[in-house]
Every structure is written in structure tokens, then in C-alpha cells.
Design a protein around this nucleic acid. Sequence first.
RNA 1: UGCUCCGUAGUGUAAUUGGCAACACGCCUGACUCUGGAUCAGGAAAGUCUAGGUUCGAGCCCUAGCGGAGCAACCA
Length: 563
Amino acid sequence: MKESEDIGKPESQNFIEQAIEKDLNEGRNGKRVHTRFPPEPNGYLHIGHAKAICLDFGMAENYGGKCNLRFDDTNPTKEDVEYVDSIKEDIRWLGFTWEDREFYASDYFGRLWEFAVSLIKRGLAYVDDQSADTISEQKGTTTQPGLSSPFRDRSIEENLDLFFRMNEGEFAEGSRVLRAKIDMASPNMHMRDPIIYRILKTPHHRTAAKWKVYPMYDFAHGQSDYFEGITHSLCTLEFEVHRPLYDWFIDQLKTDDYRPRQIEFNRLNLTYTVMSKRKLLELVKDGVVKGWDDPRMPTLCGLRRRGYTPESIKRFVDLIGYTKVEAINDVSLLEYAIREDLNKRAPRVFGVLKPLRVIITNFPEGVSEEMEIDNNPEDESQGKRIVPFSREIYIEQDDFSENPPNKFFRLAPGREVRLKGAYIISCTDLVKNSEGEITEVHCTYDPETKSGGPQADRRVKGTLHWVSAAHALNAEVRLYDRLFSDEDPSGHKDTDAREFLNPDSLTVIKDCKVEPSLVDAGPLTRVQFQRVGYFCVDYDSRPGMLVFNRTVGLKDTWARLNK
RNA sequence: UGCUCCGUAGUGUAAUUGGCAACACGCCUGACUCUGGAUCAGGAAAGUCUAGGUUCGAGCCCUAGCGGAGCAACCA
């Protein structure tokens, strides 16, 4: 009864979907939905961008519309083709496509110029000869109105002449700007005669030295939306106060009923994470991390290298939703999303991080036995793999204790444990070196207890993972912890991100041993080392040495074993 | 002391637009037992920032207050 009611019940909508459907119902813009993702190519995409990408492309998908990729490249001093390429790669990796709709704000420099000229001719824009400081002073404050520039009422002819000469390169950077003539007393600071063009002589990565003046964001964004036929321009909350200006320019530009509409949503904030592109760039430049794709970085390429899947990121974005509340999302939710995904798709394999040699004294020398083990006990379709077993194996150092404390249910002298997928073994002896360190443990095995064998059901205290010494592959494992810790930098907007660095954010463990089935594992192969966590093969693995990045650890693994 | 936006379990989101405050993560119990912290079962936790008002009925509408965020780059 209740279930049948639920079936017809529509999924709850977020406020953006509601706004879009309202527009659709009212027949606006020919009932089209057309969005755009507009990154500035001045850095690598991070997970915050993923939230915007999922929205922009997702809304288009939901409503049978399109989503353009548009590079907001109006500031040649900060932008570079390196970033253009990485941005495209990351969007594709997330699984979205812009087909042939790859645009650049710089594609519209000509039309924006024409529009600016038109504003001048209509008396709605003027060239200001004052310095940045003076203009800033005249702007007033949030509580006091601004003052008019002495150049505000320059003649149209003079404005035109100056604007053209600005673009000829006749004037120095910073010497003149073009401003829209709106309202110096507006309570909205952005409406107080905003600067719309400035002189920049740095060559542009696409238009080279063609232009000497470049439009500001506010003068490029809405118009670019208009030129592309965008219906819903989704951006983050901090642009809310820009909306009146966005609309003002559209009003001056539009020639028919079509008009794009800006809707703002909350930016992604993650605990223990810095999301500012500027600060991430500093970390890269200062060598705090090894690059934009350092697995500790919140960049998409960093997360990818760490082993995150696109699905898990989309799932996470889905979980946190879109609102107008400035929320701080807990990274544990992101970790949940990747565990949930990897639990289903990552095969279980044996990896011993800190090996301890175990000799099974009653097992024949020079013989190896093939154990057939499920790749994923929860998913039979992932099949089984062969893991060789032999007289000498490695187990985890932590899985042996000479003088076991209470509730230690793993291997200890005189005790029995099960080797996952193989036999029950019993510890008979141990060997120490001159420093008193345990170097070898001797055990006997019970042939009747092989997995599936007659005695396999026997209850033992614990189950251990293992790797046959003769067959083991050498590996190096990098455990990544949070780059920032203790004091949470996500709430500190203006402080130096480096103050919050966690000195233990990277731990490298060498001399690890992993099972031979991984011999051909290529970069980004994701596995679960049983009882340890999820790992992913790194790009710089080399023959004879597999390198793994830890994606995310299993939580408190020993606790259950010791229960 | 201006303008704009926002206040719902610890966190993030819902609430069929005025009708029994729900879901997820996290946390706690229990079950399962070659290990997955998966799966299953259960539990604690908000009475919706505050005070008024309208109404049979308010998280939702109105008023005032409190609290938080954004805005004064020739950045986006």
C-alpha cells in the first residue's frame, strides 16, 4: 500500500530544478535548456569544479538540453594552454561531453568590443584617465555613495577616440580604463560605474597580441552567455551581487525575447581541504606537493591518481546537493562515496605492507600449491584468481605477537590462525636476530584445513592475509593522509594554507610484498588489500617495483578481529 | 552598521508548496564469521535561530530581532 504510493512520487527537486521547470512551464526561451561550464584556464580543476560540472552538464542532460564548455579567458596574465588541456581531460574523465561546443570568451572579443563601442555611442560608457587607487577611492564604501569621476561626462567622440587608441597600444597599462556609466550611488558596489575594459599588454594564449584591451569578467560573462544562447547560467553564490550588473548588460544587448538567467548555488567546501586555486597553485609552486596531480591535492587529477573513480565523485556531489546555504561538507562523506564504489568494483588482493617471514616447517620444500580465491566475495561475476602458496610466506608484522596482550587474536607462539584462502597454521617457534628482533616465525600447517577441505570449518581466532615468499612481487606503498590537519583550514579564508600543513601527510613504505597476480597491473588499477584499505597503482610503477597509492583506508580493521 | 543571500538532528540535504519533520553520512547495539568492517536487524539524536502575528493548522506566509556569509580587484 505504502510502497505503491511511493512509486508515483516524484523525486524531490532542488531549487535549481524548480526554477528551470518554472521557466519551462512559462515557455521562456522557446522552452530550451542550455547551460555552460565556464572555467578560467588558470589552474587545474578540483572537486569543487566537479560539483559545478555535474550541475551544468547534469541539468542539460535532465532537460534534453545542451551544455557548452567555455573557457573564460579574459585575463591573459594568468592563463595558459596547459590549463586548457588539463581541464578538458578532467571533464572527459568525469564522463561528460561538450561535443563540438568548445568555446572561448576570447572568441567574442570582437563582438564585445563592438558592444562596448555601442555603449559609448549611447552615452553608457566612458574612458576614465584616473589611477586604480583614485577610482577605488571614488567608489565610496558599502555605506557611503561614490563620487563621479571628472571624466564621467566626456564627449562621445573623445571616448571613442580614446578607446580606440587604448587598443592601439598608445597608452600604458593602468593609465586608462573603460567604465560603464550606471550609478555611483547604487547600494550595490558593482553598479558604481564598473570597469569593463582595461589595458593589458601581455600576449593572450589564443589571440596573441591582437588586443591591447581586455574585457573584465562582468563585461564578458553574461554577454558570452547571450551569444551562445545560454538559458541558465549557473554559478556560485559569491556572484549573487553581480546579477543586477549581469542583467543590466543583457538589457543593453538583447534584441528579442530571449534572455539568459543567472542562478547561484553554494560552492563546495570540504573539511580539512583548501579549495582556492590560488592557494593550490602556491602549494605547487613552492614544492609543498609534487604537482597538481599530487595524490594529496583535491584536484581531479590528484584524486584520480589517488584512485578515486569518476562515479564516486559524482555520487558524492549527488549526496551533498545544491542549496543556497554556505555548507561545509565533511570529507568522510567523500570517503564513504569512494569506499562504497570501490567495495563493489575493486578486487581483493593480498598485500603485506610490513613483511614477516613465516616458514611452514611441515610443508614440502620446492613445492607450490595453487589456491583459488574469490576476487570479490560479494560479487561472483568477478571470478576467482590463483594465488600460489608455498613453504615460506610473508605475513604482516602486526599480525604476530610474541607476548600477545589480552584480546590479541592473531598469531602468537602456540596459537592457531587461518591463512585466508589456504590453511590453518599453528606457531611452533620463532627466530630472533642479535638485536632481539623477530626475523622468522616457524609454523606447522594442518592439511585437512584447506579452504573447502574437511576441517575447513574449524573455528580459529583470526584470519590473516599472506603472500608466498618465492612468488611475491616487490612493491612500494604510499600512504596519503590529509594534507591539512588539526586546525581545519577550510574555515580560514585569508590565512596561508601552509600554516595548516600536516607534516605526516605522506608516508612511504618500501619493501612491501604483494601477490603475483598483480604482475601486469597498469596505472590506475584499483584493488583492495584485504584488511588494509583501497589502493591504486601509480603512474611511476616500474618493472620489478609496483608503486601503490592508498586511496582510502578501511576503518579500524583490527578492532573487529580482536573482538 | 548600507545592500544581497542564508538559518531544519553532529554533518549534509528533504518535507507533495499551509497538513503526523523524512533521507543519507557519522555515532551506538545486536547478528553473521576464512576478513567484507561487507551484509542484515535495531537504536540514540532536531520539534525547524528567537519573539510575536495570520490560520482549525506554520519549517513553509507576515513583522521585528538575533546569528552567519558575500559585496568596496584595472581577478574570475
